[in-house]
């Protein structure tokens, strides 16, 4: 089997004024692989996510994406239209704040259905059936399909955002602190849901988090970032159980029983 990476980044560099936000970052994401980027606030992990997903243009380096057709596209040269098309079909983006990823005034069914309609679904009954199925999968009572997310709890909103993102079966999902604003008990449920869906659908995920426990639960591979650089990377359990870099040791030591 000739397997190739979905996303390949080489030598990414980006400065905000004098501050290096990214400094020589390279990484690959393979099909079905969950990669977590951990590091403290300001380490450049969110910037890296934005550069990899084409939202931000780097000063140096390149990001290549291999589409379902097998052709490789440079993420920063493909043009906004192609990037948007990618964003609503083959890619997904789960935001920390569900308000950034949902239409708060549109019903739960409409939120899930939007991505289907954006890629051409035109059968109301089919869209509704699919939305119902996805609400069930993310453990939202399908009877609430016509309620708006404003009437949902934070955890439900985040689960709805995940349903909306995954409904088009993307191959690559970017997640930015998906459990960020939630209570601990709600976090556990969400993490487990993500873990299950990712495994079932064989998704590749790039997860940005400062939650080491979440990274351990979800990620196959871990990248530790500090001051715009990847200081250590490898198998999740090895990086966390046998950290080599001083900063990783500090990070792991700071966590309560990860």
């Amino acid at each position: 089997m000739m397997e190739t990476p979905l996303l390949e980044a080489h030598g990414l560099g980006l400065r905000f004024g004098t501050i290096p936000a990214l400094d020589g970052v390279s990484l690959e994401i393979w099909p079905g692989e969950v990669v977590a980027i951990v590091g403290e606030s300001g380490s450049g992990k969110t910037t890296l996510l934005r550069v990899l997903s084409g939202l931000l243009r780097p000063d140096a380096g390149s990001v290549a994406y291999r589409g379902p057709d097998g052709a490789t596209h440079s993420v920063h040269d493909m043009g906004e239209a192609a990037l948007r098309r990618l964003m609503r079909s083959d890619w997904g983006f789960v935001h920390q704040n569900p308000r950034d990823g949902l239409r708060m005034g549109v019903s739960a069914g409409g939120n899930v259905g939007e991505r289907l309609m954006a890629v051409g679904a035109r059968h109301y009954g089919g869209i509704r059936a699919e939305a119902t199925e996805w609400l069930r999968r993310v453990e939202i009572d399908p009877a609430r399909i016509d309620d708006t997310p404003q009437q949902f709890s934070g955890g439900m909103q985040q689960r709805l955002q995940i349903a909306r993102t995954l409904v088009t079966r993307p191959r690559l999902v970017f997640m930015d602190e998906p459990t960020g604003g939630l209570d601990v008990s709600v976090q556990a449920r969400l993490l487990d849901l993500i873990r299950e869906l990712v495994a079932d659908l064989g998704l590749a995920v790039l997860l940005v988090t400062h939650d080491i426990a979440a990274a351990r639960l979800l990620a196959h591979r871990l990248l530790v970032m500090r001051q715009g650089r990847v200081v250590e990377q490898g198998l999740t359990d090895r990086v966390l159980d046998d950290p080599q870099h001083e900063y990783t040791q500090l990070l792991v030591a700071s966590v309560l029983a990860a």
Binding site: V106, S107, G109, G110, G113, M117, A118, Y124, I127, D146
Partner: peptide
Amino acid sequence: GLMHVRLYEDIAR
């Protein structure tokens, strides 16, 4: 897609 969401919401409601 957004315009179709509007139509979807109409039918739902």
